[in-house]
Amino acid sequence: MGKSGKEKNTLAKAKHSKLVNRKKNKIKKDQEKRKERLKAILAQHSNQQKKEAK
């Protein structure tokens, strides 16, 4: 049987999970930005090569 009374650490756990989720979202966002930047650089590079080949 569970304990009776006030639950312990629910606020701390909620705060921690909120911060961890924020950190994960930031990392994902940064990775997506990096991918898009690389795609743009590669596209620019391939366009340059096409112009030079002509």
Rank of each mutant, 00 (worst) to 15 (best):
N9Q: 08
N9H: 11
L42P: 00
K39R: 13
T10K: 09
L11C: 03
L38V: 05
L38R: 10
R37W: 01
E32R: 13
K35G: 02
H45C: 04
A14Y: 07
K15G: 03
L19S: 14
S46P: 01
Q49M: 10
K50P: 00
N21W: 07
S17D: 14
E32H: 10
L19Y: 12
N9S: 08
K29F: 10
K23N: 13
G5I: 00
E36Q: 09
M1G: 07
K29R: 13
Q49I: 09
K28I: 02
K28E: 11
L19G: 08
G2M: 03
A43T: 06
K3W: 06
R34S: 13
Q49K: 15
E7S: 04
S4R: 05
G2F: 04
D30T: 09
K51G: 01
Q49C: 02
R22P: 00
K8W: 05
M1S: 04
E36H: 00
I41Q: 15
L42A: 09
I27K: 15
K54A: 11
N21I: 03
R37A: 11
I27G: 01
K50M: 07
S17I: 08
K6M: 03
A40Q: 12
M1D: 06
A14Q: 11
A12W: 06
A14F: 06
A40I: 02
K26I: 05
L19V: 06
Q44G: 10
M1E: 05
V20P: 04
K35P: 02
A53L: 13
K35T: 11
K33F: 10
D30Y: 07
K29T: 08
A43C: 00
E52K: 15
K6Y: 05
N21R: 11
R37L: 01
M1N: 03
S17N: 12
K24I: 01
A12F: 07
K3I: 03
S17K: 14
G2A: 07
K8S: 03
A43N: 07
S17L: 09
M1P: 01
L11V: 02
T10N: 06
Q48C: 01
K54N: 12
I41C: 00
A53P: 00
E7C: 02
K13N: 13
K35L: 14
A43I: 00
K15R: 10
A53W: 01
K8L: 06
K3M: 04
E32G: 03
A14C: 03
V20T: 12
E7W: 03
E32W: 07
K39L: 07
S4Q: 05
E32M: 06
K35V: 08
Q31K: 13
G2S: 04
E36M: 01
K26T: 08
I41H: 14
K54T: 11
R34D: 11
K29Y: 13
K28C: 00
E32A: 09
K29L: 08
K3H: 06
K8Y: 04
V20E: 15
E7F: 03
L11Y: 04
D30G: 07
E32L: 08
N47K: 15
K15H: 08
R22E: 15
S17T: 12
K33H: 10
K6W: 04
K39A: 13
K29M: 09
R34A: 13
K15S: 14
N47Q: 15
K18D: 12
K24R: 15
K50N: 07
Q31Y: 02
E36L: 07
Q48E: 15
